[in-house]
C-alpha cells in the first residue's frame, strides 16, 4: 500500500514574517499547519469541553496577538504549545464547578474498571481490555482545581518531566512538585472512598 508523502517541513521563519506583515494567506497556512497540534493539546486538557473549536480559535487568536513577541529562542511549535496549555488553564480556572465523583455516578463499565484496578494489576490487565478507563480518569481529574488538573495531566497522562512542565506553564519546579503531590493525595482519598463503596 502506498503511503502518502509526508508534508514538507514548514519554514516557520518565513510564515511568521509574512503573518507579521499581515498576509492572510500565510495566516491561513499557519492555522492549517498547527491545527492538529493545538487540537491535541486542547483535547487532552479539556476533553469534556463541547466547544473545543472555540478554544482552538482562542488559542490561535492569542498566537496572532503575541506573534510580535516571538523571538525564535525556542522552536515555534513549542511556543505555540505554551500558549495552548495556558489558554486551557485559563478556561479551567473559569470553570468553577468541580463535580464530586460518587460511586453512584459511575457507569457499570467504570465500576468494573475500578474494581479490577483495585484487585491488582494482573486482574486489571484482562478486564481493562473491555472497559475504557480514561473516562474514570477524566471524572477523577475533573474534581481537582485548574492548577492540579493541568499539572497531573502533563505529568501523569502525557508523562512530561517537571522541567518540561515548568517550560510550558512558566511555573516553578517546586510548585509543580508540591501541587502534583497534593493532587495525587486528593485523588487517592477519592479512590479510597470509591473503593469502600465498591466493597460495601
Amino acid at each position: 500500500m502506498l503511503q502518502p508523502d509526508p508534508p514538507p517541513p514548514v519554514d516557520w521563519d518565513d510564515v511568521i514574517a509574512r503573518v507579521r506583515e499581515g498576509c492572510q494567506q500565510a495566516a491561513r497556512g499557519l492555522v492549517d499547519s498547527l491545527y492538529g497540534h493545538v487540537m491535541r493539546i486542547v483535547r487532552s486538557h479539556l476533553p469534556r469541553a463541547s466547544d473545543e473549536q472555540d478554544l482552538a480559535q482562542e488559542v490561535f487568536m492569542k498566537l496572532f496577538h503575541r506573534l510580535e513577541s516571538y523571538r525564535g529562542d525556542q522552536p515555534f511549535p513549542h511556543w505555540v504549545s505554551r500558549i495552548a496549555v495556558n489558554t486551557c488553564y485559563d478556561r479551567l480556572r473559569r470553570q468553577k464547578a468541580r463535580p464530586e465523583i460518587r460511586f453512584a455516578d459511575l457507569t457499570a463499565e467504570e465500576a468494573e474498571f475500578l474494581q479490577s484496578t483495585f484487585a491488582g494489576p494482573d486482574q486489571n490487565a484482562h478486564a481493562a481490555r473491555d472497559s475504557d478507563g480514561s473516562e474514570v480518569v477524566e471524572k477523577l481529574l475533573a474534581t481537582l482545581n485548574a492548577t492540579e488538573q493541568t499539572i497531573l495531566r502533563l505529568l501523569d497522562m502525557e508523562q512530561k518531566s517537571v522541567q518540561e512542565i515548568t517550560e510550558l506553564t512558566g511555573w516553578g519546579a517546586s510548585k509543580v512538585k508540591v501541587t502534583a503531590m497534593r493532587a495525587r493525595r486528593k485523588l487517592n482519598e477519592t479512590l479510597k472512598r470509591l473503593e469502600s463503596g465498591l466493597t460495601s
Binding site: F118, P121, V137
Partner: peptide
Amino acid sequence: LWEQTVAAARRSG
C-alpha cells in the same frame, strides 16, 4: 490507587 488507575487506563486504551 491513583497510580494504579492511571496505569490501568493507559493499558485499556
